[in-house]
Simulated scan of single mutants.
Amino acid sequence: MYKILLVDRCYFTRTGLESWLNQTDFFPAAFLVTALNNLMLAKEHIIQWQPDLIVADLFGFKHDLHHIEQFSSLLAACGKENRLILLQSGEDAALADYCAQYPLQASLLKTAPLETLARVIDAAVLERPAREMPQIAAPLLTRQEEKVLSLWMEGRSNQSIASKMCINRKTVYTYKRNIRMKLGMDNRFTPFLSLPESVN
């Protein structure tokens, strides 16, 4: 059983790839797939869930505030134990040069044929030994907590989040407290703080 983390802002890409990866006709190995649309949450998943393979579209996040810090944080979390495939929704020379500093399994555009992507994924997972099937495959955050975190990262107030999700404002506070505890955040401003700049 191989664990794959999909990181993509596009809902349709995440659900489409997740469905495609779970079709056993295409791949000789079985996959446990988690899909996320948040770079900070993805970094925490890499550290704690330790996927064998990360498939990410960083191009979709390049206009985010503090995107370089989030990219470096995510890319630094990828280590020897997992492989990174960039499946980009567009081309950007500066982003490509930046990502080239990190070990990548492959970099493809989303327009690449599925057969090509399947070969790249097969090569990446076959380089690693299979893990035993986990007894419990629980995500780090619940679906509701992921929704709250996404809205929180957009800068919405507790009242706005409560209205959007049709829940009580006190429930939003509880979700935020749980998110901070699970992600090891020191205070309520942690998701919005940029990482310190590296000195060269």
Rank of each mutant, 00 (worst) to 15 (best):
A106D: 13
L65A: 07
Q50N: 10
E69M: 12
I54L: 11
L95S: 09
C99W: 09
E132N: 12
Q70T: 14
P113D: 12
A130N: 08
K110T: 15
M40G: 15
E115R: 05
L149Q: 02
P129I: 04
L95K: 05
E132W: 05
R14N: 15
L53C: 10
L41M: 07
K147N: 12
I136T: 05
S107L: 05
A77S: 06
A130M: 12
A42V: 09
R119G: 05
L95Y: 01
E145F: 04
L86R: 11
S150L: 07
K43E: 14
C78T: 14
L32N: 00
K62V: 13
L39C: 02
V55F: 02
E69A: 13
L87E: 11
L32R: 08
R14I: 15
R9D: 15
L87W: 12
E81T: 15
P103I: 03
S72G: 09
G90Y: 06
C10A: 15
Q135T: 12
L151M: 05
V125F: 12
N37C: 09
F12Y: 14
T13P: 04
L6T: 01
G16Q: 02
R131I: 13
E81A: 15
I47F: 08
K110W: 11
D52Y: 00
I121M: 00
D25Y: 03
L58E: 06
A30V: 04
L32V: 02
V120T: 03
T111W: 06
A96K: 06
I136E: 07
A77C: 03
A123F: 10
S150T: 00
L21H: 00
L141A: 11
N22Y: 06
W49I: 00
L84E: 12
F59E: 05
G60R: 04
S107A: 11
D25F: 00
A56L: 01
F59Q: 03
Q144L: 13
I136H: 08
A138N: 09
D122T: 13
C99R: 08
K43Y: 06
R128S: 10
L53G: 06
A93D: 06
V125A: 09
F61Y: 15
F59I: 11
T15Y: 09
Q23S: 00
T34P: 01
A30F: 02
A100P: 04
V125D: 06
D57F: 11
A123K: 03
F31C: 02
A130H: 07
V7R: 02
L39S: 01
C10Q: 14
E146A: 10
Q23D: 08
P139C: 01
D92F: 03
A96L: 10
A42P: 13
Q105P: 07
A77M: 04
L151N: 01
E145N: 05
F26C: 11
G60F: 01
W49C: 03
W152N: 02
L109A: 13
W49E: 04
L53I: 05
A35Q: 09
Y102G: 01
H66P: 06
L17K: 11
A123M: 06
K147A: 10
Q88S: 12
K147R: 14
L108G: 13
D92W: 07
L84C: 11
V148G: 14
F27P: 00
A30K: 04
A29K: 06
T111D: 10
E69I: 10
T15E: 09
C10F: 10
L141N: 05
S107G: 00
L108W: 07
P28T: 12
H45C: 11
A96T: 15
Q135C: 09
T116L: 14
Q144V: 13
